[in-house]
Design a protein around this nucleic acid. Structure first.
Lengths: 112, 112
DNA sequence: CAATCATATAAGCACCCACTTATATATAAG
DNA sequence: CTTATATATAAGTGGGTGCTTATATGATTG
């Protein structure tokens, strides 16, 4: 994990940003390529300020980035943004592995 | 992915459950082994009902399970509970192939 | 320049949520 | 049976959040 900040605040921002289904829907829409605010506004039944606010939340969480082209601002997914989330999940890897190993041992003993 | 529910409601419950830092802290505490409500109440500076409510939220999200022993109720992590979250991340494998592949291996072991 | 388009920010509001205290339920102990 | 312990549930409350409309900022166009 190179260049990993691992700050609880950033972790919190990510979890909070993804907690809202509208935000997850916007995030998912961006997987098909970058999109301007009005593109997303058209795709979802929501006001323009709401879209901008969701995007601001995602950007502060490091999940998306923006690029201005004329008067449009295109948003795209920031690939590294999910790293803290993946790191958080992997943090429980040892726990899961232990559980699985113990379960395997138990099953082996029952087979004998 | 065997026995995968993949319901948006469950997905939402998981994201919402993990959005709260207190709940994540409780979840993390359970990785060190099962614990009763009072154990967690002692570990964190929080009232007993607050702990019970957090645990209820985690249980409804499928992230923890409980077991009664006398008048104590022990909570433990439900290893399969994270599956929908991992599945959601896998959906973006085009962006994070390597890290997601490692998570996939973990998921496969959990399924066995 | 003025007008228009695209987005951001401000302000307000209704609802949600995490906490509290109070009470109910359930098991154990005397 | 009464009391104590452990947890859950109910009810209330302050702060946060997601939405709206209104306005500001910024870039293009005529």
């Amino acid at each position: 994990m190179i260049g990993m900040t691992r700050s609880p605040e950033q972790e919190n921002r990510i979890f909070q940003a993804l907690a809202d289904p509208s935000r997850r829907a916007i995030f998912e829409a961006l997987t098909q390529g970058e999109a301007a605010v009005n593109d997303l506004k058209a795709r979802f039944q929501i006001s323009q300020p709401a879209v901008s606010q969701h995007l601001a939340s995602l950007r502060e969480a490091g999940l998306v980035a923006s690029r201005r082209d004329g008067r449009r601002i295109y948003y795209r997914i920031e690939p590294q943004g999910m790293e803290p989330l993946i790191g958080w999940i992997e943090h429980y890897r040892a726990f899961w592995t232990e559980r699985v190993d113990r379960l395997e041992q138990l099953l082996n003993r029952m087979d004998q």
